[in-house]
Structure formats: structure tokens, C-alpha cells
Nucleic acid binder design. Sequence first.
DNA 1: TCTTGACTTGGACTCTGTCCATTGTAGGAT
DNA 2: ATCCTACAATGGACAGAGTCCAAGTCAAGA
Lengths: 136, 136
Amino acid sequence: MSDLLERLRGRGWRMTSQRRVVAEVLDGDHVHLTADEVHARAARRLPEISRATVYNTLGELVSLGEVTEVSTDGRAKRYDPNAHHPHQHLVCSSCGTIRDVHPTGDPLVDLPAEERFGFTVSDVEVTYRGLCPACA
Amino acid sequence: MSDLLERLRGRGWRMTSQRRVVAEVLDGDHVHLTADEVHARAARRLPEISRATVYNTLGELVSLGEVTEVSTDGRAKRYDPNAHHPHQHLVCSSCGTIRDVHPTGDPLVDLPAEERFGFTVSDVEVTYRGLCPACA
DNA sequence: TCTTGACTTGGACTCTGTCCATTGTAGGAT
DNA sequence: ATCCTACAATGGACAGAGTCCAAGTCAAGA
């Protein structure tokens, strides 16, 4: 955790109480919170923090590669603090729960050159969908 | 095309001019339009068609499995008429263009049982990201 | 301690999508 | 061919997620 704050400071971040709280909320447990959920949790510690600041901070963390944005359902984006460990997602089609999963193999090698249409392919996301035990 | 209209009629769809136009727009070329783009194209042929009807019709087509919903960017959902041929998507991180691609291998078999956490996994989506030739 | 440019605020605004009461009509029944 | 009616379309209000901006605040270097 303090790792994260250190890295951010090292990158020239001005360390404000708002940014610290947002970083701490994300680092708390590895669930996948929406921006508004992050805001709600941050506001428990810092009641006057604004939504705009949370959005700004999340955007910066994403740019810095410290956090990954996940949009699995076309609704609110979710923020995944587990950005330094490659993984994919397993989503419950009914309740929306997300779990990190680690498939074997690398889908990048499964896309032959003639299927790349001249794109410079740099990343791949895999989303598994199904029903979680509670919803099944 | 008329295939599609036939299938829909066979499923008890009441065939209105609005539904016909939406189906024809989707069937036109295999691009991935947003709901508002579908509405704009439909309105060229049927100026008084409402947004609500387009949303309703798209939702029905998705339920019937004739069209797939794709949300790659957390912005507007896109509608993929190519629902009867399994494929994945390649998205340009800069301009948002989407291409259908056909990777080899099946990512479902790459998810071991101990990584399924009791979920009943039924589907998997793979999204490749990169820069298209025009943006690179 | 002072200064200043980066950061935060909150409210207005945009975009995407949903809801609902009202009006219209496709297509089976007569 | 006409009538009925359940299903569909309309459009305007509303909601959720996110962005923008002008004004005020403050972290941190001098």
C-alpha cells in the first residue's frame, strides 16, 4: 500500500488528502468498485470529497497504469487495483459479481497475423460469463 | 436479409415498418453501430421513428439472439448483426473502430476448474486492443 | 513564511438509456 | 372488406454515469 503512495509521490504527484484516501480505498481489498462506490467509501473518511475529484484521481491512476478500468456490462465502469498481476475476469450474468481468474495460455498468440488487419495489437481482455454459485 | 425478417415473423413478431427498417439497417453492412447511429440511419428512411422504438427493437433482437450487444469502451453499446458466426473483436484504442476477428483455440478450455469458483461458465468474450493502421 | 501552480469543489451540462401514458396499427376474426 | 384488440410506437420526462469549468484552496519548493 504505502508502496503505491511512494510510487505516486515518486512520479511527481502532489499528495493531497483526497488522493491519499482514494488510493487507500482502492488498495483496501481487491474488489472491483465503481467510481461512485469509491466515492462513497472515500467520503466515509473525508466527507467533503467531491465526485469530480474521485473521477479525476481514478483517471490519473489508470493513466499511470496503477489501476485498470473494467467495463463488463455497459453500465458503470469498475476499477481494478490488481493491475500489476495479469489476470482476466469472470462475471456473473445475474448479479454482476466479478472475480479475477488466471486462464492458461495466451490469447495474443491465438490471433494470427492475417486476422490483425494491420493493427498493432498490444493488449487482450478476456471476460468469462456465467452464473455464480449463489445465482445458479 | 429477408431471412432475418422471415425468422422474426416466424417467431410471432408483428411486422411493423419501424421494425423492418431497424432490421434492414443492421443487416446493411456488418459494422458495429451504436443505438443512436441505428436510429439516425433508420430515420433516413422513416423520419418519424422514435429513439425509444429503436432501443426496444434492438433489445428484442438481442433477446432473440439475432444481434449481439458489444460494450467495448464503457460508452455507448454497439450492436453486432453477425450473431450467427462466432467471432471476437479487435478494437482501435484511438478511434474506436471495431473489426470482427477469428482467433484460433477456445479460451473456454483455458479456464481450469479450480479457476471457476463454482460458476457455471457459459460464454467468453475476447477483446483485442491496439492501434489501427490509420491511427498508428 | 510566501508564492504559485497544481488540485479540489460543486453545480451545470452531456450522453446514453429507461419509463410511461397516450395514440396508432397489424393482422386475425367476422 | 371491415372491425377489434392486443401489441407496438411515440415523445417527453426522468435517471445514471461521467465531464467540464470558473472560482477557491493548498502542498511543497524557494
